[in-house]
Structure formats: C-alpha cells, structure tokens
Computed example of a mutant assay.
Amino acid sequence: MRIAFPLYDGVTQLDLTGPAQLLSRMPDARIDLVAGRMGPFSTDSGFPLHATATFDQVSDADILCVPGGFGTTAAMEDDALIEWVARIGAGAAWVTSVCTGSLILGAAGLLAGYRATCHWAAREHLARFGAIPVAGRVVFDRNRVTGGGVTAGIDFALALIAAIAGEDHARFVQLSLEYDPAPPFDAGSPDRADPATVERYRAMVARLAPDRAERMAGIAARRGFSAI
C-alpha cells in the first residue's frame, strides 16, 4: 500500500502528520513525502519536514493524500507539483486531501464534478475548480475523500482505513492511538465559536493570505476553469 503526500513550503504539518500516523498502521503501508527536491520544507509549526522522494522517483501510488496550509496557494502555482498531483491522482485507487489540500486537487483537475470539503474559511474556493463544496468533516464521493480543516485529518484517516481495511482494523488503530477526543472548549466550528473568535481568525487569514481570492481566481483561469 503506497501512500504519497506531496510536500511544499508552508504546509500545515498536522494536515500531513495526522493522517500519516494513522495510515501508516494499515497493512504493508509505505509512506513517501514527495517534492520537487530533496531536503527540508518549512511548516506552519516552526520545524521542517523532509522529503523522502522527488517527483520523478514516485510514478504511482495507491493513495494520494494532499495536505493544506497557508502555502497552498503558492503550491497551486507550482506547475511541477500540480502536474505530479494530476498524474498520480489519475491512477491512484484513492484521491484524498486534508484541509486546503483539496484546493490543490482542484487545481490539478481532480475534483471537477465531485463533492468535496475543505477548511471552513476557504471552502468557497472549491467551486472555482468545478468541485461541489460540502460542509463536512469527512466527505466521500466515489474514490475522492476529502477532510475538513487540520484535525479533521485524523477522522478522515480512520474513515479511509475503514473503507480499505475494514472497520475492525480502523477501531484497532483508533484504540492503539487512544484517539478519544474530549476538547475542553466547544469552539472548533464557526457555527459554535463566539463571533469575536471567528473574526479574530478571519483577521489572521487576511493578514497571512491577503490576496488569496485573487490568486485563486487567476489559478483557476490559467488552468481552464470558468470564472464564478
């Protein structure tokens, strides 16, 4: 079971390491972090992740899993990365993502006509790439499986393990990692967080990605998607 994650600067490490931890517990799993070069890539957590293979070394995968992060937009503008994602996704048994990684799938032409989710603050952009945005923690549409923001990658991975290796094995993985969430606050969704916290997050996004909407529109146009 070959599992490939594309790696790029500015990735949210938990988007990658969360599902990687769980998916590594599938039978005969092999995980590669694939990039245009070997070496370290920056993450949002202040420590790097290192590529284990380059694009030309990985020509196929059973599972393609694309993580998100504030580096997503730049990754979508990287032709080599998008071409690799499109090529691997065309032959993968499962085409998947976590958080804004679904936007990368979209830019690669892999979500047109598919229901998909994303981090709530960026979900609207999925429609630019022909996807059908859905507000869900984990969304299955045929062999496309997308997870919501960041921590949803853990739920996503368990659901994918169940689909591939059966519920018994997924329950075993859940127990082995003691995944028994009981958050101290009920603020994990904009529907339940107080308005001040939601606005604080939106202000952070505006500061860190001030031109995201314009760049998304440009990427969609360059890749042949109709304007919305």
Score class of each variant (00 low, 15 high):
Ala217Ile: 02
Ala116Trp: 00
Thr151Ile: 06
Ile161Asp: 08
Asp44Met: 15
Ala196Pro: 01
Val58Gly: 03
Trp84Val: 03
Pro19Val: 06
Ala29Gln: 11
Arg37Glu: 12
Ile154Asp: 00
Ala20Val: 02
Glu178Gly: 02
Glu214Gln: 14
Trp84Thr: 07
Asp9Val: 06
Gln174Trp: 02
Tyr201Pro: 00
Gly218Glu: 14
Val173Leu: 03
His50Phe: 15
Pro195Tyr: 11
Phe47Gln: 11
Ala187Met: 10
Thr100Val: 08
Ala80Ile: 06
Ala116Tyr: 01
Arg212Gly: 00
Arg223Met: 06
Val98Trp: 00
Pro19Ala: 10
His50Asp: 08
Pro210Val: 12
Pro67Arg: 06
Val150Asn: 09
Met38Asn: 07
Ile104Cys: 13
Ala51Phe: 09
Arg207Thr: 14
Ala108Tyr: 10
Val150Lys: 04
Ala227Ser: 15
Arg202Thr: 05
Arg2Gln: 13
Ala217Thr: 13
Ala121Thr: 12
Val150Leu: 10
Cys99Asn: 02
His125Val: 00
Ala35Gly: 15
Gly148Val: 01
Phe172Tyr: 14
Pro210Tyr: 12
Gly106Pro: 09
Cys99Ser: 15
Val85Phe: 04
Leu22Pro: 03
Cys99Gly: 05
Ala196Leu: 12
Phe41Gln: 06
Pro48Phe: 10
Ile88Phe: 10
Pro40Asn: 05
Glu199Asn: 14
Gly69Ala: 05
Ala20Pro: 02
Asp141Trp: 08
Val150Thr: 11
Gly218Ser: 14
Leu177Gly: 00
Gly68Lys: 02
Leu22Lys: 01
Tyr114Leu: 02
Phe172Pro: 00
Ala80Thr: 12
Thr12Lys: 08
Gln174Thr: 03
Ala193Arg: 04
Gly109Pro: 10
Asp79Val: 13
Ala165Cys: 15
Gly71His: 03
Ile164Phe: 05
Leu33Glu: 11
Leu111Asn: 09
Pro19Gln: 07
Val134Ser: 08
Val150His: 05
Ala196Lys: 14
Ser189His: 10
Gly68Asp: 06
Ala74Gly: 12
Pro210His: 12
Glu214Leu: 11
Leu208Glu: 13
